[in-house]
Simulated scan of single mutants.
Amino acid sequence: MKLKILPPTLRQKKRYIALKLYAENEVSKEECIQILWNSAINTFGEIESSMINLWLIDFQEVDNPNRYEYNIIVRCNRGYEKKAVMGFYTISNFRKNQMTVHSLSTSGTIQSLRDKF
């Protein structure tokens, strides 16, 4: 027996956030996931972080001769976008790698974020 898919009216709404990550040293995709989740957990705790429901959608390196720069798209639940961005702003270093995160935009679809940036 096949499981039924939830109709769109019962699914949780999602929002997508475009971020820029600047770092002194190279960062892998797995480290980026750890960085984002650790910032949310340290800022809000485990229960509130699970309500935010962060998910890394896209991770691309940008050519920059001065430092490592990455374009990131993150998914979160609707209504928690501001909390997610607030958690990202607390990122300053990870394993002795100085870094900073800038939020570019928030959108309801991935395509509109990619069109903007």
Rank of each mutant, 00 (worst) to 15 (best):
S49M: 03
L19G: 11
R78W: 01
L36V: 10
R78S: 07
A23V: 13
E81I: 00
N77G: 05
N38P: 10
W55L: 05
M86H: 13
T109D: 08
V74E: 08
S103D: 10
N97R: 03
E61A: 01
R67T: 13
R114K: 05
K2Y: 12
L3R: 06
M1Y: 14
E81G: 04
F88A: 02
N93W: 03
I52K: 00
I47V: 09
L6M: 04
Q98F: 08
N71H: 08
I52P: 12
L54K: 00
I47H: 07
N93H: 04
K82S: 12
I5H: 13
V74H: 05
M86I: 08
D63C: 08
Y70V: 00
I41Y: 13
P65G: 01
E69Q: 06
F59K: 01
L36T: 08
L19A: 13
I52C: 02
L54C: 01
L21Y: 12
S112V: 14
H102G: 15
D58W: 01
K20I: 14
D58C: 05
P7E: 05
N64C: 06
E48Y: 12
T43D: 10
T106H: 02
K13A: 09
P8W: 00
I41L: 11
R75D: 09
G108Q: 00
T90N: 03
R67C: 12
A84M: 08
I57V: 07
Y70F: 05
E24H: 15
R11N: 13
I72A: 11
E24W: 11
D63E: 10
K83F: 15
I73Y: 05
F44Y: 10
E31W: 07
P7M: 00
N93P: 09
D63N: 10
L36I: 15
W55G: 14
A40Y: 08
T100K: 11
E61I: 00
I41W: 09
I17G: 14
Y80H: 01
R95E: 11
K116S: 15
S39A: 07
S105G: 12
T9L: 09
N97D: 07
L10M: 04
L54G: 03
E69N: 04
G45F: 13
Q60H: 05
L36Y: 10
E81N: 00
F59E: 03
M86S: 11
V74P: 12
K82T: 09
L36S: 15
T106E: 06
M99W: 07
Y80I: 00
L3V: 10
E61K: 02
F88H: 02
Q60M: 02
I91D: 07
A23F: 15
S103P: 14
L113F: 13
A84F: 09
Y89D: 03
K96W: 15
L3F: 12
K116A: 13
R11F: 09
F88S: 02
